[in-house]
Design a protein around this nucleic acid. Structure first.
Lengths: 240, 240
DNA sequence: AATTATTTGTCCGTATGTATG
DNA sequence: CCATACATACGGACAAATAAT
């Protein structure tokens, strides 16, 4: 945390996301907050501007600064996404996130199969080989797995999808410890463990992309993420 | 545009998006900008905080405020998205956006088929009936079409997808005039015109959701958006 | 319909923090 | 280690908008 207003953004933002401040609530007015928190009004005002850009609050003259409904939040802001994921109350949010992955990552894989340049292909190949050599090594696998998916993503040549999925993955990594905690009593982790079986699931994706078979790449990526979703639903008892 | 810092955000933000300020460029320092633009340093600083939250710039003490690479931008911020769409240079960005729709909207349709409550279903039904009555009326169709897709979206019960697609649609509406301009020399508009043929495409989606056939709903929504994508590719000559 | 009170918005003089040369 | 250049932080004053009276 670099400066005071960033700190304040974090404090207030997290309180909003965890509904310590609920939508409709009024935040303390600038002067009060300034005094209470022992920071200048400048700092408070800048923090409110940031929170406002995140869609968490809206300032109105005379009426004060009010917390906005969840539908207005900027979910793809890394801070917001991380705060939400860190909050226990949003356990089914992980399922929702996975549904987005289910929408975007197979699409990205299909696009990669279509658009990958020679250079993209060699990066995917290299990442895949690292994956193969990481079977059995938990830590090495995690890193290789990340790079493998990253190389496919980049090959999609769709900046919007690349950016969105990267934000999503960063947020998941940020809050991973907590999630591992929640899942450690279950036989399967939502995060890949470096077994032969899981490796096979990656191989078919790799093969499909190399063969430039868009629909197969889409299908196999869907299968991989669907597995994660099923595990999450089992863990959190989410259904319908 | 309400206040001065919002104005400044718009001015600077648009200049960054249209690469009048390119990634790596240094923005004028706070005091200079303040003097040049005849606003207080407060206003400049607050604007920079907002731009920083949008991922467009990063401020460093002593080094000044630098424009960030596109990969760092917060694409799902409505302002950023609108500015990008308004910029002629990003014509293939519309295709990228459509690829995201292709990832998310069929997913939302499938989820709607799975999760829609009775209340959701009746809203979808009502929106569909309005659609049917709007055939031939350009203006009424646009509104009914919007509400039809909105009702499906809401029935997905995935806040993240709802929020993302809504942002996307708002941005498209914001910059629609320009796009219509670009497409009016072509036989088909990327936006639905109220013909029987287009209505049929909506009917099959409606039928699939009512029947709670997830895969069919996904498929038919894919078909609908794929049509838009093909038209865009024809218009902008995007390929590979 | 006019006035007032309250809160954000704006300005600016000054001081401190931080990385660079 | 000092000087420089920039962002960051402080706080008193006033302007503008708008909810409440």
């Amino acid at each position: 945390m670099k400066n005071r207003s960033e700190q304040l953004v974090h404090d207030l933002g997290k309180k909003i996301v965890t509904s310590e401040f609920a939508p409709g609530d009024l935040l303390p007015k600038v002067e009060d907050a300034s005094e209470m928190l022992k920071v200048s009004r400048t700092v408070v005002r800048e923090a409110l501007r940031v929170l406002s850009t995140m869609g968490l609050v809206r300032s109105n003259q005379r009426a004060g600064t009010v917390v906005l409904p969840r539908s207005d939040w900027q979910w793809w802001n890394l801070d917001v996404l991380t705060w939400v994921l860190e909050d226990d109350k949003n356990s089914d949010f992980l399922v929702h996130l996975t549904e987005v992955r289910l929408g975007l990552e197979p699409t990205a894989a299909a696009l990669a199969a279509k658009r990958a340049s020679d250079h993209d292909m060699s990066k995917i190949k290299h990442a895949f080989e690292r994956l193969e050599q990481s079977i059995g090594d938990e830590k090495a696998w995690a890193s290789a797995d990340y790079d493998f998916h990253e190389s496919i993503l980049q090959a999609s040549h769709n900046d919007l999808i690349i950016n969105t999925v990267k934000t999503l993955r960063k947020a998941l990594v940020n809050s991973r410890e907590k999630t591992l905690e929640a899942s450690k009593n279950f036989p399967e982790s939502p995060y890949d463990s470096p077994t032969q079986e899981v490796f096979k699931r990656h191989r078919v994706i790799y093969d499909a992309i190399i063969a430039r078979d868009e629909e197969l790449a889409r299908q196999k990526m869907t299968d991989l993420i669907l597995r994660v979703k099923r595990i999450l639903e089992k863990i959190y008892g989410f259904q319908d």
